[in-house]
Design a binder for these strands. Structure first.
Lengths: 197, 197, 197, 197
DNA sequence: TATGAATGAGCATTCATTCAT
DNA sequence: AATGAATGAATGCTCATTCAT
């Protein structure tokens, strides 16, 4: 009786075993050969579980995003002021050194999506964004309900997400400091958006 | 004695003759051979006036940026309400079909800068941004002085530029409509920033 | 499971199939395309077995050297007078028309090593020399032991090898005849080195 | 009345002004543009005085050789033992740090001659050698006449020149020390060649 | 006599993907 | 199910030399 392997699990295992590899080499310099070697399988086998290189890179980045999302959610659930939550929310990617490498990969992913926009990539990218928007939207909506922010604040959720993308892109140029920019924007917005009582 | 050519002018001419070529092929698929052919010179001649492929691509994109900047400046000088100016300012790149192709090239340029951040590229990129910020900053500053906007509005100039970058990146995904996003953001900001009298 | 090939053997086969090609074109004008075509494989395949062009050229030259070395060794083992052996030993490369082409390639190799001295090349070059020295050293040592040559003769082994290199370089200028020069040197040395009884 | 320039003199001046340039860059990386610039003339002008790049490089190397030759001649004329003279003669190129750079250029010249043996180059190369042989021949001949060396010694002059070329080639590999090799060879030869009285 | 603008040939190398076994 | 051997397209850049002025 042949060993029945759980396709889904093996797929995940291969991807997981290559997280560090991706962080080290970046997307472009990651080769299928390396992946196969680190995962301890043949190159052909990789293609049994992933349709192409993009596919496996997605899987790995996806695992980063999921982690990130989880942390973001935790922030949104913590006991702290709305203001505090929002600052922490947007700081997360830039504050924690641990995420610096992941951000670098994510930035590379954005760049690739910009020049080779496969349907697959775009969908994945949209999905990532939606999650960010959902969580930050929740925080803002709560604040509005509590009467801490004016109702118009809800319209800032999507712009903030777009700003966030812009920040990821521009931050690399070192002409600006991400955390300062976030602070500047949020400080200003709070002055404008806080409900006068 | 040989004819002395105006190096600066010939450089510009070669670049100008390749604008369409760049718009058609994009940065990556533009070859030096094509450039030389279209410019009507030898490949070696191209390298007399440009140090490498990047250099000539910069020059062409630069000519796009300068035009764009000029249009932006014209908008800032027009006789119209501050609000109108700002909307037109941010619409420009997305409103006019003529700029769609240029935007595509600029997006590709951003993507390349993200993955191969040569000093040259980054500086060029920062310079482009500065110009946008300078002009939009002027519009906002005027509005504040006229008492149309609250003083905090000036802190929104840089965030708006970053938002703009984000918009250029995200717009391509077709999950959002750039003009709608701009409208949404500006509408909301104006409600928040307009001085109550 | 795919066919497992003997990497070492295939490597040798590719190199062997290109011996004539190298002799015809020389190192500089040998292209990877030609190699792949003559070897009957794709260009990429060549790079599966060799890390770069240098690598394959080494392999081929190495095969020439090994042959040469073998012949030299045979000479050293033959039944003939020490004098005869030594003359034949140094004549070999210049005497046999068959080796003319190989010498030309080897000369080109030396020239390349002189201007682009990669560690790899230098080591290979040193190794080649060592072999020559080992064999000729053996012949001389035997002659000394038999009392045919004075003891000082052993110190001539290394100088003779250096002289040999010089001869390979100078011979090409056609201002001198390699065999005559060898005869001249050896004749003189034998007069000086032969043990007076 | 137009300025009559001494063609020969201007030619020499251009060459002389580029000695340092050649020592710094080496033959291959020396460009006509650099030469023209350093000499303070136009590129076309360089070709008025030299037929090609080889030609000017010859001229410069020639000036090095002439200097070297002069030093060698001085050694041959000095008041010292024949033995001493010969050691100094062969040491000169390797002993003096000042000549290290020149030797490097000369080595490069040899390498180029080996792969692109233009008639011009070969002739020049032969000429260089002749000079060395003439001077060393003189020293040896004198010694023979004085009865210091056996008559056969005269046959070692040409071999020594070839050995010298070999040494220049091999020395670079750093597998041997030029001065040690010279000492070894000369020591041995003197034992063999000195006239027993 | 002096000049400098114009030229153009030529080649190594990588790696995702396939498919025969 | 697993594998790994084979593949091949595609492009920037240099610099000696010429010759019109």
């Amino acid at each position: 009786m042949p060993t029945i392997v759980d396709k889904e699990e093996k797929r995940r295992n291969i991807a997981l075993s290559c997280r560090e590899l991706l962080l080290e080499h970046g997307i472009k310099d990651l080769t299928i050969s390396q992946i196969a070697q680190v995962a301890g399988v043949g190159k052909g086998t990789v293609y049994e579980y992933f349709s192409n290189k993009e596919d496996i890179v997605f899987e790995i980045i996806s695992s980063f995003i999921m982690e990130h999302e989880k942390r973001l959610f935790e922030i949104s659930e913590q006991e702290m002021s709305t203001k505090e939550k929002i600052y922490q929310f947007y700081f997360l990617f830039f504050d924690d050194d641990m995420y610096k490498k992941q951000l670098k990969i994510y930035r590379e992913f954005i760049a690739i999506t910009m020049t080779n926009p496969s349907k697959q990539m775009i969908e994945f990218s949209i999905e990532c964004n939606s999650k960010i928007i959902a969580i930050s939207g929740k925080i803002i909506a709560d604040a509005i309900q509590k009467g801490e922010l004016v109702e118009e604040a809800i319209h800032m959720v999507q712009p903030l997400a777009i700003f966030y993308t812009g920040l990821i892109v521009e931050e690399q140029k070192s002409a600006l400091n991400a955390k300062e920019e976030i602070t500047n924007l949020l400080d200003t917005l709070f002055i404008l958006m806080e409900k006068k009582r």
